[in-house]
Nucleic acid binder design. Structure first.
Length: 774
DNA sequence: TGCACCGATGTTTTT
DNA sequence: CATCGGTGCA
């Protein structure tokens, strides 16, 4: 019955079978650590451990979902009782049920980064501080840092070193902003991302009986990607594992790439010191990549000083050399990538999803997209502006957030005058002042306008009262209807769609589609939650949305597409053919991360991660000039190319391009070995002199609304769909092919019930991206 | 209060 | 280059 164990190598097997007590699995790239984790959990369960007693913390929710699925293949339905998810989502749930201990409402809102920045911006403004000295994003960064180190406002003011540091940084009021920020979040019934961890720590330290309860529940704790945990997460794990000490952490110090958000590589380096009697397991055999790729990657990571001792090797075939390509411009780089994908796909009969393009910054996707689109190669982009951060989506979500939690100030500010209802800045300022004065939420003030000393003329007052009445009516609605129906109702009542339509630009169509997509997503959510017998309430949906990662929303039923994503997002993924683009000094390694050895080492680990995503073939490309901030800037090849042992590299000759801009041609006909002899300059100190201004002539600018929509091949919206008939075969960008079962309503409300492979969906024809195919 | 226009500002990386 | 906030006018 446990034949799966026979398929493991000795090291993997030992790790899977490890019984009690603390353990660490040092898992090199591609060494089958997910398998080990999966089987370890399955094995625990088969040996009588109750699923309810196992907590497994993963890096993305998608990873959790997939792991659960794999475990259930071994142990059956019992797997769904496992506690599995990201730190943020697992502890958000726990915080909800324990919220009253902390004085928070259980329906607290989760502020995303944008909400936090806006709140800080208004605090800075209210305090009359110079916004050039107090840059909201930097301030938030600092606060985040403090929170992740568990330094509360009180602790901050008790620590003169910290205060001095901020004095030196010319931000003497930082503590005060921090204080205000925390208060305002609390008053708004909101937690930011860091609060989810910080407040969990607070909960576990201040309430021993709560700690005891969860210690007793989580008798086995597994933490994936341990190298990327921050101090706050570290302490949570420590506290929870303290009683049973069945803690299993998995990670690879060579893949620690999140120091910028507080991850502490010491957590993994010191694990053996933290827990007595730790058993160490090393997974050193790579099953993913060819010899050339593994050895090339090893030769780079060797340059790092700080690392645990391990040797990654593979029994796989040697494979092709890592191909290095130099191009003149980013558009040529894009063209190269697109052409290579096209050719390889044809020659080797591959599918689009065998290819991935990785880059350091999101902005780089643009040139690649253009090139792929021109060649009609379907692609999907992860990251960048995520779906849920789009304006129209945040607006709709704003209403939902306010009706769930009227104290949610950021959401309230967003929607109180959208669509325009004559409530302007002046009024908002007065309300904010009053709210701060009475230490109540703005919504409280709104509900008690008569009792509050506030100078608002009667016209405005009526508008405010109407607004409150509307929200209250939504709340009533929410009592009787499910989340989907409520959202539908809200969208209709607020006339948001009408407002967008009135502008009438083509972009608006896409925005309306997005809102429809949100509704569909909400419907989906309800269906799957009900299927699983879990909470399908609106507030859980909002939580999911706030904590969703871009990878989570990946749709399986799409046609195969080339993946475009940052290296950070690519961690944990693998593709047969990988293009790492933009290998240029100041871009990768980033100009912002070359100041200290540790920063540079993190960049190098990032490069290591990039290279080790490839199974069969890796390409490294760099451009000799690139548009940055709209200007053409000269670039030099990244030091990381040179750091790879030359014997693993194959320098491709640059293509002859007669159309190339004469300005850029110097060095075009070098003998191909030139990149070997290129002298790498030290970090450039703002080299503007050799900047050439060239108008981006052949640059193809895509319609804005397509920019982040996932497909190059997405069907355009036509009016055809309005003439749908029962029995028609249709195709939907997301749900695939389907057949029309029923049509109801008319005009703008016309809906069709369509049977898709994934189930029956009801879609508003006005928005659904449908193509009639028969 | 609402809207149109302009300049300043910013890109690492994300839960 | 693209977004945002501020300014000035209706």
């Amino acid at each position: 019955m446990s034949n799966y164990i026979d398929n493991l190598n000795p090291a993997q097997k030992e790790a899977v079978l490890h019984k009690e007590g603390p353990m660490i699995i040092i898992a090199g790239a591609g060494s089958g650590k997910t398998r080990v984790l999966t089987y370890r959990i399955a094995n625990l369960m088969q040996n009588g451990v109750d699923a309810f007693n196992i907590l497994s913390l993963t890096f993305t929710n998608k990873a959790a979902r997939e792991m659960k699925e794999r475990i259930s293949k071994v142990v059956g339905a019992e797997a769904k009782n496992l506690w599995m998810g990201t730190f943020h989502s697992v502890f958000a749930r726990i915080l909800r049920s324990e919220a009253d201990h902390l004085g928070y409402p259980s329906n607290f809102t989760i502020y995303d980064t944008q909400d936090s920045v806006r709140l800080i911006t208004s605090i800075i403004k209210e305090m009359n501080l110079d916004k050039d000295k107090y840059k909201p994003k930097q301030v938030l960064g600092r606060i985040s840092q403090l929170k992740n180190s568990l330094i509360t406002v009180r602790a901050y003011f008790g620590n003169s070193d910290l205060q001095e540091a901020d004095m030196m940084a010319k931000r003497p009021k930082l503590g005060e902003i921090y204080h205000q920020y925390v208060e305002r979040c609390f008053k708004s019934g909101a937690m930011d991302f860091d609060d989810l961890l910080l407040r969990t720590n607070e909960l576990l330290t201040r309430f021993p009986q709560v700690l005891a309860k969860y210690q007793d529940r989580f008798r086995y704790i597994l933490v994936d990607e341990y190298q990327d945990t921050n101090h706050s997460q570290y302490l949570i794990v420590r506290a929870l594992a303290d009683r049973f000490r069945n803690i299993c952490v998995v990670g690879d110090d060579s893949q620690s790439i999140y120091a910028f958000r507080g991850a502490n590589i010491q957590n993994i380096l010191n694990f053996q010191r933290d827990y007595e009697g730790v058993k160490i397991y090393k997974l050193e055999q790579n099953y993913r990549s060819s010899k050339n790729i593994v050895e090339a990657a090893n030769s780079v990571i060797d340059k790092n000083q700080t690392k645990l001792d391990k040797t990654i090797w593979t029994a796989n075939e040697r494979g092709g050399l890592v191909k290095v390509m130099r191009t003149h411009s980013e558009s040529e780089e894009g063209r190269f990538v697109a052409e290579r994908i096209f050719e390889t796909k044809m020659n080797e009969q591959l599918s689009n999803n065998d290819f991935a393009v990785l880059y350091r910054t999101n902005a780089q996707s643009r040139a690649i997209e253009d090139a792929l689109r021109k060649k009609n190669i379907p692609y999907k982009i992860y990251g960048g502006l995520s779906f849920y951060q789009r304006k129209e989506i945040k607006d709709v979500l704003g209403y939902l957030r306010v009706l769930i939690n009227p104290s949610d100030e950021e959401a309230l500010k967003r929607i109180i005058n959208y669509p325009a209802r004559g409530i302007g800045q002046t009024t908002m300022d007065k309300l904010t002042v009053a709210a701060n004065h009475y230490k109540r939420s703005i919504f409280d003030v709104l509900q008690n306008l008569d009792k509050v000393d506030i100078k608002i003329n009667t016209g405005t007052k009526t508008k405010l009262e109407n607004f409150v009445t509307m929200i209250q009516s939504f709340q009533v609605e929410a009592k009787n209807k499910n989340a989907f129906e409520v959202a539908e109702h809200v969208i209709k009542q607020t006339r948001i769609i009408k407002d967008i339509e009135s502008d009438g630009t083509p972009e608006d169509i896409s925005r309306i589609e997005n809102i429809q997509e949100l509704l569909n997503g909400l419907k989906d959510f309800i269906d799957t939650q009900e299927e699983k017998g879990e909470d399908a309430s609106l507030s859980y949906f909002l939580e999911d949305v706030a904590l969703a990662t871009d990878l989570d929303s990946d749709k399986e039923d799409d046609e195969p597409k080339v993946s475009l994503l940052t290296i950070h997002l690519a961690k944990g993924l693998e593709f047969p053919h990988v293009f790492v683009v933009g290998l240029e000094e100041n871009l990768f390694p980033s100009a912002m991360s070359m100041n200290t050895r540790s920063e540079l080492e993190e960049e190098r680990r990032l490069f290591y991660v990039a290279l080790t995503r490839a199974e069969k073939q890796a390409y490294l490309t760099y451009a000799q000039s690139r548009f940055r901030w709209g200007k053409l800037v000269d670039a030099e090849p990244s030091r990381f190319i040179e750091e790879i042992d030359e014997k693993f590299l194959d320098h491709l000759a640059p293509p002859v391009n007669p159309r190339a801009n004469p300005f850029l041609d110097s060095g075009l006909f070098d003998d191909g070995s030139s990149s070997k002899t290129v002298r790498f300059k030290k970090p450039q100190t703002k080299t503007k002199p050799n900047t050439v201004n060239v108008t981006p002539s052949q640059r193809f600018t895509p319609p804005k609304n397509l920019k982040k929509v996932s497909s190059a091949t997405s069907t355009s919206v036509g009016t055809v769909q309005m003439n749908l008939e029962v029995g028609n075969k249709v195709e939907h960008g997301r749900f695939g092919k389907g057949i029309v079962l029923n049509i109801e309503g008319s005009g703008a409300d016309k809906k069709a019930e369509i049977k898709f492979p994934i189930g029956v969906k009801k879609l508003l024809l006005q928005f659904a991206k449908l193509k009639v195919i028969g």
